[in-house]
Design a protein around this nucleic acid. Structure first.
Lengths: 339, 339
DNA sequence: CTGAAAGCGCTAACAC
DNA sequence: GTGTTAGCGCTTTCAG
């Protein structure tokens, strides 16, 4: 059986209170007994039970992380960075993929609460904010990453999507494009909305008329983006550039182009969003708006731990700046049109 | 404050024992009181504390999952499938990336044990088996996925790597290749060894001399694979095909080819391993040896839960068959050599 | 059928 | 400095 605090106490000839004190470095104990207890703990290979200590009202040192899909490289990278920071600080993280399904979100949150996680980080993109409201009402520690809910005072870290969208579109405009399409995953989600707003603003600045025909919604699957891009390519007046609201969708549009025997960026320029592994792996390497995933992950866990330690700490919204990473998927329109 | 079993008991006018019984559906309680208690639980929005119940010796319903790197698509996909099955069965999963670092593995395992996870699934590729031995000695539930440790009797689910390597090489041989190289991530790891052994065997069968010059080791990063592949391409007698021991490495070799103004499969045929998202996304779509990731994830959690429920259940090794997925990265050597 | 009570491993007053 | 003791929320005999 695993050693308990009683075993240590007995072996060391002290009381369990004393052992507890040396474990938690509280109270005052003589150097001598401290050393002895420590030695015994070593010998017995004693590990305090987080479960028992949690029951007495202490933390469980575990965080919940809700995201749409771990198999999506963007979220996998987010998860990795959250995990890294959490581990640094002694926390574990329970990850739950929800597929953006409301029911699963609810179930997972309730599960996480039963397990007494100290806080929950949410990256999932619900349209619905009742879940968040509930959590807030119960004063349960929550923080958002890569998604926004400006109507609620919740700690959040995200990238400025408006600027990101603006960057993508401006870059394309600077390269001479005027027929610029957008493919977004879901216009109901804040970040998509903002990216599109940034895009529109860039168009306006450049005096280009906004054409609603050019902004399309796709499912989150690459095949769907491919399909949507394909339709646009086959239209009588195809765009010369497409801004895909994330790298995964961008790969779909690149595939659509290739399938038609055309080339990127020769026949169509493409810019993505996120700067995941994918951007470096596809051909051509993708020009994309980078989110500082590492930093974002780090910041959310710092945020949530702050809340855990002080439930009344003032809420923060940290918005980071995206950055345009230029690779090879954009050129001037018509530049190599005839190869 | 959160409602406890006492609150429910008081409200329902029964003892906590009775409430406990209706929660766990143990003992015998009248339909009447059962209904009443259930109603009160609803009203109070009562959720039993997993922590408290774990302290009494019951399970925590959480699993640990150790893997090298969540940001690697293969492992992200594994994690996703493990997570799915675990949730189905009411378990949560704590994920830990170890970067294949022994120290981190140890730390994480010890952390997971302090948190009383019910079992640990290991996908990480330690060369060292002492950790596993320790776990086994303590009779702690462990299961391996996508890695092997045949010297220890541990529940495992993996793909037959020998056959996989054989498939990859045979396919290439059938296409007429004779100068076939391999890039592996780490020859000390079982699965790499086996894949290479399968490759050698296929060569032998075909009467092709084995040339150790053609099997190279690379770091796990794509840039490294690119570098290694580049060296081979620049050699006086470059291979006409490369078998990359995973899809990520394969993307590296494709990049190396492209960087030299050559093409896949025109100048070099490539076959990968794993069949992750990457395989469908790169250009050309990658011919690769598929691992049944979904099933594998499902099976390990079934395995580990079996062990949890019966620590003495006989160990199982479930080895699944890989499958060659033919896409467009392989052609006959020289076929389009001059475009 | 239902309840009283012991105990899971640990923390935190409060004594000594 | 160190020990006693009362919980934390729940499960589980064992009586009744």
């Amino acid at each position: 059986m695993k050693a308990t605090i009683y075993d240590v106490a007995k072996q060391a000839g002290v009381s369990i209170a004393t052992v507890s004190k040396v474990i938690n470095q509280t109270g005052r104990i003589s150097e001598e007994t401290r050393a002895k207890v420590n030695r015994i703990m070593q010998e017995l290979n004693y590990q305090p039970s987080v479960v028992a200590s949690a029951l007495t009202g202490k933390q469980t040192y575990t965080l919940g992380l809700l995201l749409p899909d771990l198999a999506n490289p963007f979220f996998a990278e987010i998860a990795r960075s959250v995990e890294d920071r959490a581990h640094e600080l002694g926390f574990s993280v329970m990850i739950c993929s929800t597929d953006n399904n409301l029911l699963r979100e609810e179930r997972n949150i309730s599960l996480l609460k039963q397990k007494s996680v100290d806080g929950i980080i949410i990256a999932t993109g619900v349209r619905n904010d009742t879940i968040l409201k509930d959590l807030k009402k119960q004063n349960f520690p929550v923080a958002l990453i890569a998604r926004d809910m400006p109507s609620l005072a919740i700690d959040t870290v995200l990238v400025d999507d408006f600027i990101g969208g603006h960057m993508a579109a401006s870059h394309l405009i600077e390269q001479g494009h005027r027929q610029i399409a957008v493919i977004a995953e879901d216009t109901l989600v804040m970040s998509s909305k903002e990216r599109i707003r940034g895009y529109r603003f860039a168009l306006e600045e450049a005096g280009i008329a906004y054409n609603p025909e050019l902004v399309r919604i796709s499912d989150f699957k690459v095949t769907d983006a491919k399909q949507v891009a394909g339709e646009m390519l086959d239209s009588p007046e195809p765009p010369t550039a497409i801004f895909a609201c994330n790298d995964l969708l961008a790969t779909g549009v690149i595939q659509a182009v290739r399938e038609r025997g055309l080339s990127v960026p020769g026949d169509l320029s493409v810019v993505g969003f996120d700067n995941t592994l994918l951007a470096t792996i596809i051909d051509p390497p993708l020009t994309t708006v980078a989110q500082p995933i590492q930093e974002m992950g780090q910041r959310v866990v710092d945020l949530i731990i702050r809340i855990i330690n002080d439930k009344n700490s003032t809420k923060q919204r940290v918005v980071m700046l995206p950055e345009l990473v230029i690779r090879s998927s954009v050129s001037r329109p018509g530049e190599y049109r005839n190869k």
